[in-house]
Simulated assay, not measured.
Amino acid sequence: MHRFKELEIWKKSRIFCKDIYKITADFPEVEKFGLVNQLRRASISVPSNIAEGASRESPKEFSRFLEIAMGSCYEIETQILISNDPGLIEAKNLETLQAELESIIKMISKFRSIVKSRV
């Protein structure tokens, strides 16, 4: 069992979630129940699954929740690229989000390898 609040991937994914909220606040009202909702839910899913996995007794279960968090990261990546197509995200914001997301993906992947080795 891990103390999720001490995990850097949890901290970083929470900050990323806040960034998603800031950027989607500028999306048009018509996207409120579309891309805004999807992006926010997927971004919330990342730290939430890390926290839930940390509460599990077995490394195998924790690894599974990290896998789900990783899937949410790829969902977010797809959604920000789709948001960029009609110009809903500025190029500089897109680059920043992609860099942050890539860093989180790498951290989750590395941490998941460590957790899986304890099975």
Score class of each variant (00 low, 15 high):
13 S>C: 04
67 E>V: 03
4 F>Y: 15
86 P>L: 10
59 P>D: 14
88 L>M: 13
37 N>Y: 11
42 A>N: 00
78 T>Q: 05
116 K>W: 06
57 E>M: 07
14 R>W: 08
57 E>W: 06
19 D>L: 01
116 K>E: 15
73 C>V: 06
69 A>M: 08
46 V>N: 07
30 V>I: 13
48 S>G: 13
87 G>D: 09
106 K>W: 02
49 N>F: 03
99 A>E: 13
34 G>E: 03
42 A>I: 01
52 E>K: 13
59 P>M: 09
29 E>G: 00
79 Q>L: 15
89 I>K: 03
115 V>L: 03
41 R>N: 08
60 K>R: 15
82 I>G: 00
87 G>Q: 11
36 V>M: 12
42 A>T: 00
92 K>F: 06
106 K>T: 06
108 I>V: 11
6 E>A: 14
110 K>G: 05
12 K>Q: 07
91 A>S: 09
12 K>Y: 02
77 E>A: 02
3 R>Q: 12
73 C>S: 09
107 M>K: 10
36 V>A: 01
108 I>W: 02
113 S>F: 06
83 S>T: 04
77 E>T: 01
52 E>F: 11
16 F>V: 07
74 Y>I: 04
84 N>H: 15
81 L>R: 14
9 I>E: 12
18 K>T: 12
8 E>T: 04
92 K>T: 07
26 D>S: 13
94 L>R: 02
108 I>R: 05
94 L>N: 02
49 N>C: 01
102 E>H: 09
9 I>R: 04
21 Y>P: 01
99 A>Q: 13
93 N>E: 11
106 K>D: 07
110 K>Y: 07
35 L>E: 03
63 S>G: 14
68 I>T: 07
92 K>P: 00
116 K>R: 15
114 I>S: 13
27 F>C: 01
68 I>N: 08
13 S>A: 05
53 G>E: 12
35 L>A: 00
64 R>M: 11
79 Q>S: 05
107 M>R: 06
49 N>S: 03
45 S>L: 07
16 F>S: 04
6 E>S: 14
63 S>L: 12
32 K>F: 08
90 E>G: 01
3 R>E: 14
55 S>A: 15
22 K>R: 14
64 R>G: 00
119 V>R: 14
7 L>Y: 09
110 K>P: 00
10 W>L: 12
70 M>A: 06
112 R>N: 15
117 S>F: 10
46 V>Q: 08
79 Q>Y: 08
1 M>R: 10
106 K>Q: 10
43 S>D: 04
18 K>E: 13
21 Y>S: 02
65 F>T: 07
58 S>C: 01
112 R>D: 11
44 I>N: 08
13 S>P: 01
58 S>K: 12
64 R>Y: 15
11 K>T: 11
50 I>S: 12
77 E>W: 03
48 S>W: 04
20 I>W: 05
117 S>G: 10
113 S>L: 13
66 L>T: 11
67 E>H: 12
1 M>E: 09
6 E>N: 14
68 I>H: 10
23 I>S: 04
72 S>I: 04
44 I>S: 05
80 I>L: 02
105 I>D: 00
4 F>M: 08
86 P>S: 09
119 V>H: 06
68 I>P: 02
107 M>H: 03
59 P>Y: 15
